[in-house]
Nucleic acid binder design. Structure first.
Lengths: 227, 227
DNA sequence: GTCTATATGACGATAGAC
DNA sequence: GTCTATCGTCATATAGAC
């Protein structure tokens, strides 16, 4: 109540730094050993402290997973950057979707440990908290908004349900990521047996949801000016 | 070398029975507690024996996972039964694919623990052995053969690559299963937010790969109006 | 407030007696 | 083939030093 005018005192800042360091080490470990390979003891060992000291910053191992879950979605959202709005300038629906799809799947395949944590449910007893879920929800609603805008611009059929379009899109991306990571986790995005199917599947998706008569740039401009 | 004329002596038969019992209990446990919740100690406890005794039948916990992996794929293949050949009598490609897709995804959603083990890679250090992989390979090559036969019968475009068709199909099913189990694991198949997208996605898939001409005009009209 | 030291109980796994 | 005994590791909890 009384010291809230000071944004961050030294102690709080130091505490946040330590929390970030714990997450750094935990993310490294998860990348090396897989999601289930994360161990409180090993994190402490690498930080040069004793395991119980970690409980000052994270109440449990699942709280650590929760922090990693939130961080993973934040990293992914940062990586996607402004692409969701920028692709609205692309020539075709197919081009636009392939660009964001490639970014998304590319990050997932390059970060398999995070992907397991974000897209699957590998840890017994771990359910992401509402706070940790927030960036995930943000990502989904961002996709929905983009599809809505695409429909407003006449790229997507007017009779298509944006919720259904969004759902189908996430299913498609999840399928590619899931199959690639489960069956050939060491293949790169460029040479992945399943990631290579992405352009084809995006084409299928775009053709299915594209407005019936593909709009020429002129018609698209006319369409947009009507709103 | 000397006793191989006898197909199964009592000891061997008893051993196989015990192995089956271990797998029964392990599958129950996995269903109750999730894939990672499987514990050698708990399996032994439920069988009324001591944990070390299990090592007579399974060299390690991962060997137990291996047995469950093979058994899961066998159960799924049995569940699919003769559907892959029977659906060749259906009226449309869409009907046929929706039928096998519904069976496959339905089993997966009804058996989430097995699904995690079969379709994801949740256990650190566990890589299915070649033996355990055999029924999985059988399932995939069965799908490929069905698509090949569909192409021979003129249902699927002659210029489509059967390998690509098969791959896209597995991605689609994996996407639905993955999203449903990760985001709403307690929803039934009938009411699942993601399983409900299956008919739509199968329609998209069928429309994309269907041969342009073999359908009568009436069927084609019905096909198109389904969207 | 933050850490160390220590303890508990479960786990996977092994050795060796019977 | 099953047991007891045991090992090392794990997540977690608590007591108390600084």
């Amino acid at each position: 109540m009384e010291t809230e005018t000071v944004p961050l005192d030294r102690r709080q800042r130091r505490r946040l730094e330590t929390i970030e360091e714990v997450l750094d080490v935990a993310a490294d470990l998860m990348r090396e050993q897989g999601v289930a390979g994360l161990s409180i003891g090993e994190v402490a060992r690498r930080m040069g402290i004793r395991p119980p000291s970690l409980y000052v910053y994270f109440d449990s191992k699942n709280a650590l997973y929760d922090g990693l879950f939130a961080r993973g979605w934040r990293l992914l959202n940062e990586y996607m950057g402004e692409s969701r709005t920028q692709v609205l300038d692309r020539a075709t629906l197919d081009d636009a979707l392939l660009e964001v799809g490639t970014l998304f799947v590319g990050w997932a395949v390059a970060n398999p440990a995070y992907s397991q944590l974000l897209f699957w449910r590998p840890v017994r007893g771990f359910e992401p908290s509402a706070d940790a879920y927030e960036p995930a929800v943000e990502s989904l609603s961002g996709a929905r908004e983009t599809f809505g805008e695409m429909q407003r611009r006449g790229w997507i059929r007017a009779d298509a349900s944006i919720d259904e379009v969004t759902r189908d899109w996430t299913i498609l991306l999840a399928g590619v990521i899931s199959q690639q990571l489960s069956n050939a986790p060491h293949e790169s995005f460029a040479k992945g047996s399943f990631t290579m199917a992405l352009p084809r599947l995006v084409g299928m998706f775009a053709a299915h949801y594209a407005a019936p008569s593909p709009l020429t740039p002129r018609r698209r401009a006319r369409h947009a000016s009507q709103r």
